[in-house]
Design a protein around this nucleic acid. Structure first.
Length: 823
RNA sequence: GCCUGGGUGGCGGAAUCGGCAGACGCAGCGGACUCAAAAUCCGCUGGCCGCUAAGGCCGUGUGGGUUCGACUCCCACCCCAGGCACCA
């Protein structure tokens, strides 16, 4: 038996598929049902594709092939997210310009994808670094600018000293740079911001309708962090000033025993009594220094201002403190502290010996330890005592609103998106700084503002962009007054390009001029036909970065009337991380990285694809197994050998050898039907690991038949090959062809199962005694009644042992499944 | 601390409308083929008791509950992974 020569066969079909230009094309507006299956496009680095890419991309490829065979018009595109820090950092190390070698990386990625038989519509390929592409990214930015969503502000921002650029909050979670892991510093820099907060409510509310993993929705919810409560005014005793505090726990206001201002609060210096001023200023300086360095104290600190505020509900005089534990950028920058019912207020009160008044008790009598932070029943709260927290919030709120001392308020944790980077390798921000006119947008006709190709583009580290040094590019005429002006030198963050790439695939068209590779032509009809993305597969690491930005961007385009729906991605699926064979995250330093190229060389692309799907559930984190892939490789070889045997058998049948006459085979029909059913369901539910195990069982079944010299109808075998095709396209297509089938499997109709044949011929009843399995009753009749089964059980050996002498109290009978004797 | 997942053989994992736990694969052991090895094929493989038998008992993180019957449902707890963390 000749071994399956995957190297030769894979090369052969790559050539054929390459020539058939139309093979994986998605056609606009055709009558078939559409489905848009999207991968998170990769960031082409020098490393090439890793096994994590292969996992997600194989899953979507299986689905795309399946749906094509099911008669769908499948849009399954691929592109490259090529701007951004990693490429630039790497380029700096190699002392080359990213503009020359990033396209080479893209070529390599594309080649790898083709070798893995990913069935993308390559005519729709885009890259975020193509000027025709980022022309539109820039245009959308200008539209946001015109809509008043873009503003410039000097703000304390997270700055990565290694990447030498400012970062968005989302990129500096936990004080570490999202890209390189370096601890970030706080720097005051002039930055462009986008008002993503204007969309906070919609970003939150529209999560409801999305078929996304619960944890990702939860992460976005927490990130947006909507809190509903009240703003309440506290008069400062002896001053004309009022302090506005934000609270979600108005029910605890009778327990407010002090006020705390943030170190940035505008009233801090105004209301501090002279005796306390020196101490206060010292404290402010210290805390500001810490803030700049990004230092964060576990220990609460603070100073007294010497002033008092009046609690509006009970007129108590309560001290006003200043502390860094109250944040300047959240709420009103001031809080009413209720130490009995808030963790931090409690610690603060304990440390500085401030009064603690308990005002909420649990509903049921139970021991409580302060601080008690749950809702409950009010005590020590005058006429509100006895009310439940919820009720009390409403009543107290109503009264204070009537008195003009409070209003309802909503605050978000989400902050505006810091949108400028002090780096070279990104989309230039299309604005001009004119000494006469101020900020002037680049006229739309002049887009794109192309990134100049330069020799030196090292980040300055001063907060200035390296583009500042490129005088020829920098100097420009002001579009308004024609005077000397300068371009904005900062670039957009890496996330900009990925905010709308799934639209670009739909809108891409052949260019009429030879100068550019393609054109993007905005066509809402096309968008209406293809959107939304039906399935979006990628890693969970983008839960609050790309996925939040893209949703925001899409909603903005919706408001412009550029896209037809509110949400871009209907269903999201996160594939689980593939760990190294040692169960640890793959990393170069650990030396446990599996390179897909090596695996393809040794076992072939089909084996790699299938093994990654067989490792475990798609969403689970699972370790790679260098031994495990042999199992898949053996399976593929067995299928290959089986095909040869069936072919030989088939020739003998054709030659009218009477010993090889074909007969009806009910068992085969049943098993094949079951397989069609299970494969179809398994693919729809993305349970690929189970589907593959069913393939293995079926192959085993066929092989045993052949070994018993039973005949197998080749057409039935070829149905199995069709089922295998989305998983192992090379092998399946090659076998298909060897059986003299001339078509490409891509558009062969998906096998239908016959429900009549799905009915079993043999039924197994589990016989239980007191719920314990004691035997199995096998029968060929389908609808046996309880008494019939009872009689059959009498013939079983277990009857004598367990039931003959026993008193049967009760019989539980489940049709087709189980009979249980309770004795 | 809070939120979201998840705990099943030596390992990856099957089985969840409550009804044969451990499918399938890996590793391991034994055998066939071979001068030999590799490859391939066949058999065994959760634990304990038992003669290598017949048979029995235990077993899905822990403890309890519901049920004729629980990996599956309910309550409490423990552990692991991921996310968030002075957000008032």
């Amino acid at each position: 038996m000749r071994k399956y020569n995957f190297k030769q066969i894979e090369k052969k079909w790559q050539r054929i598929w390459q020539k058939k230009k139309e093979i994986w094309r998605a056609f606009d507006f055709i009558k078939k049902p559409k489905i848009y299956i999207l991968d998170m496009f990769p960031y082409p680095s020098g490393e090439g594709l890793h096994v994590g890419h292969v996992e997600g991309y194989t899953a979507t490829d299986i689905l795309s092939r399946f749906y094509r065979m099911k008669g769908y018009n499948v849009l399954h595109p691929m592109g490259f997210d090529a701007f951004g820090l990693p490429a630039e950092n790497f380029a700096l190390k190699m002392k080359k310009n990213p503009m020359t070698f990033v396209p080479r990386y893209i070529d390599r990625y594309r080649q790898q994808m083709k070798s893995l038989a990913f069935s993308y519509d390559w005519q729709r390929e885009i890259a975020t670094i193509d000027p025709e592409y980022y022309k539109w990214t820039q245009l959308m930015f200008l539209k946001m600018y015109q809509a008043g969503l873009v503003y410039e502000k000097e703000a304390p921002i997270n700055f990565c000293p290694s990447c030498k650029t400012g970062l968005a909050d989302e990129e500096a979670v936990g004080g570490k740079c999202e890209r390189c892991g370096t601890t970030t510093e706080i720097k005051f820099l002039r930055q462009w911001h986008i008002k993503i907060t204007a969309y906070a409510d919609r970003l939150l509310d529209d999560l409801e309708e999305l078929d996304w993993p619960e944890n990702v929705k939860e992460m976005q919810k927490n990130w947006i962090g909507r809190s509903e409560g009240y703003e309440v005014l506290f008069t400062v005793d002896g001053y004309d000033e009022k302090i506005n505090v934000f609270t979600t726990r108005l029910d605890t206001i009778y327990g407010a025993t002090f006020i705390v201002l943030s170190i940035h609060h505008p009233l801090v210096l105004k209301i501090t009594k002279p005796d306390y001023l020196l101490n206060l200023e010292e404290y402010l300086q210290e805390e500001l220094k810490k803030e700049k360095l990004g230092i964060f104290d576990q220990e609460l600190t603070g100073v007294f201002t010497g002033s008092y505020a009046i609690n509006p509900v009970n007129k108590f005089k309560i001290p006003i403190w200043v502390s860094s534990y109250v944040l300047g950028h959240y709420g009103t920058g001031a809080i009413m502290a209720v130490p009995a019912h808030d963790e931090r207020d409690y610690r603060f009160a304990k440390k500085f010996g401030l009064e603690i008044i308990e005002v909420v008790r649990p509903n049921q009598k139970r021991e409580v330890q302060l601080p008690f932070i749950e809702d409950g029943v009010l005590i020590n709260s005058n006429e509100y005592s006895g009310l439940l927290s919820q009720e009390a919030r409403e009543k107290i709120g109503q009264r204070l609103i009537e008195e003009g001392l409070a209003k309802k308020a909503v605050y978000y944790k989400l902050r505006d998106w810091i949108f400028s980077r002090q780096r070279y390798w990104g989309e230039p921000i299309p604005l001009i700084r004119c000494p006469q006119c101020g900020i002037v947008p680049v006229p739309e006709k002049e887009l794109p503002v192309t990134l100049p190709k330069v020799k030196s583009y090292e980040p300055t580290g001063t907060g200035e962009s390296p583009l500042k040094n490129i005088k020829k590019w920098l100097k420009v005429k002001c579009p308004k007054c024609q005077g000397q002006a300068e371009r904005e030198t900062q670039t957009m963050p890496q996330w900009a390009g990925s905010c709308w790439y799934y639209l670009a695939y739909i809108l891409k068209e052949k260019s009429k001029s030879k100068k550019q590779k393609y054109e993007i032509v905005w066509d809402t009809k096309k968008l209406k036909y293809w959107l939304p993305v039906d399935l979006y597969v990628g890693g969970v690491e983008h839960a609050v970065l790309h996925l939040l930005y893209a949703r925001f961007w899409h909603k903005f385009l919706y408001d412009l009337g550029w896209v037809p729906n509110k949400e871009p991605f209907k269903k999201l699926f996160n594939q689980g991380l593939i760990l190294g064979p040692d169960g640890q995250k793959m990393s170069k330093s650990r030396g446990n990285v599996i390179n897909p190229d090596d695996v393809v060389k040794e076992y072939g692309a089909d084996a790699l694809r299938m093994f990654e799907m067989f490792l475990g559930p798609l969403e689970a984190e699972k370790p790679w197994s260098t031994e495990g892939i042999k199992g898949i490789s053996r399976f593929l070889n067995r299928v290959w050998n089986l095909a040869q045997k069936i072919k030989i058998q088939d020739t003998k049948i054709k030659n009218k050898d009477s010993r090889y006459k074909m007969q009806e085979d009910r068992e085969l029909d049943y098993e094949l039907n079951k397989l069609i059913y299970e494969t179809t369901q398994g693919i729809l539910n993305l349970r690929f690991n189970v589907v593959i195990s069913k393939f293995m069982i079926f192959e085993d079944f066929l092989r045993k038949k052949i070994e018993n010299n039973e005949k197998i109808d080749k057409e039935k075998f070829l149905i199995f090959i069709k089922l295998l095709f989305p998983f192992a396209p090379y092998l399946a297509q090659e076998i298909w062809q060897r059986f003299k089938k001339k078509t490409l499997l891509d558009y062969e109709p998906w096998p239908q199962y016959n429900e009549k044949l799905l009915v079993k011929k043999i039924f197994n009843y589990v016989v239980q005694v007191n719920g314990k399995k004691r035997g199995i009753l096998t029968t060929e009749k389908e609808n046996l009644t309880e008494s019939e089964i009872k009689n059959l059980v009498k013939n079983l050996p277990l009857y004598k042992k367990y039931l003959e002498k026993a008193k049967i109290k009760k019989i539980i009978f489940i049709k087709g499944k189980v009979i249980n004797f309770v004795i």
